[in-house]
Simulated scan of single mutants.
Amino acid sequence: MNGLHVSGLSVTLGGNRILSDVSFDVEPGHVVGLIGANGAGKSTALKAVLGIVAPEAGDIRVGEQDVVDLSPRERAKKLSYVPQGAPVHWPLTAERLVGLGRTPHLTPWQDVTDADQAMIRCVMQETDCWHLRDRLVTTLSGGERSRVLLARTMAVGAPFMLADEPTSSLDPLHQLQVMDIMRGQAACGAGVLVVLHDLSFALRYCDRLVLLHQGGVLASGSPAEVLTDANLETAFQVKVARWTEGGEQFLAPHAANGG
């Protein structure tokens, strides 16, 4: 399958223009980070790709297929989604919730197969939540629930994964594990589009970045090309300290006015 291509995306919600002429590509095997200040339109861009919000203009394609021409079932097979802080109201066990990720591949009333069950266990182990399998999701902490929802998304086995701030509410160890999982999904051939606020994660884990500012694309390219001092001060009103440790690059922001 070819890449996920977004061209000329514009979205207006409640009479407010949220995105204007936004374009980017997500190729198989790559992690693409969507970054920008609060209100820049990152989550809206993901929801437009998924069909959760209707674009005012633009073209969104998976390979040669326009996503608007895909049935909900086919779209679910191609584009999996990790929502930001999604509430869970049903008293399902964690294992059962992860199993819902296999739904696009099942016929109505079909139960999961042995192969489906093996995949469910695999992704729950990879996201460090297999030990939670018999717990009701409504009793889990925010971080535990986030890992279960990530496992559900991985269980779909879609060629493209979209994740909206998947490290929020997680402790530092599990933040690193989640970002390693994103890279692992790409290493297995998936295209990953992830909304991030942590600029150090964006630098270290992403192949390409799209920096949104006031609803448009301020910069797009490699992390080195996008995370320049000028771009960061324009988009975030911050300066950054940079250093290298163990062969990896890091950056830490501080207020541009010295505060």
Rank of each mutant, 00 (worst) to 15 (best):
A76P: 11
A76T: 11
Q117G: 02
E95W: 04
H105W: 15
K77A: 03
L50D: 00
V62A: 12
I60Q: 03
R61F: 06
L97C: 02
E74N: 07
T93E: 14
A57T: 12
A57C: 02
G41P: 08
V82C: 08
D116R: 14
T127N: 07
K47P: 05
L106F: 10
W90K: 12
A115F: 02
T103E: 09
Y81D: 00
S71C: 03
V82I: 15
K77F: 07
V112F: 06
H105N: 05
V88N: 11
G29K: 03
I60Y: 04
V112L: 15
G63V: 06
G63L: 08
C122M: 15
L46V: 13
A94N: 05
N38Q: 06
R102N: 11
S43W: 03
G29W: 10
A118S: 14
Q117P: 00
L46S: 00
R61G: 04
R75L: 14
G99H: 13
V67Y: 05
D114M: 05
V32H: 10
A115M: 02
Q84T: 04
P104H: 11
C122T: 15
H105A: 12
E95L: 11
E56I: 05
V98I: 08
G58T: 00
A94W: 04
I35C: 07
D111R: 04
A48Q: 06
C122E: 15
M119P: 02
E95G: 00
Y81I: 03
D114A: 15
L100W: 13
L92H: 02
A115V: 13
R121E: 15
Q84P: 06
P83Y: 08
V82E: 06
P87I: 00
L100C: 09
W90N: 04
K42V: 07
D116W: 13
I52Y: 10
V82T: 02
G36M: 08
E56H: 10
A118L: 12
V31L: 07
K78E: 01
T44Q: 06
D69C: 13
M119E: 15
R102P: 11
P104D: 14
A76S: 13
A48F: 04
D116M: 07
Q117R: 15
K42P: 08
I35E: 02
S43D: 00
H30Q: 14
G51K: 04
S71M: 09
L46R: 05
V98S: 01
R102S: 07
A54S: 12
D59K: 10
Y81G: 00
L70I: 04
K42T: 11
T93K: 14
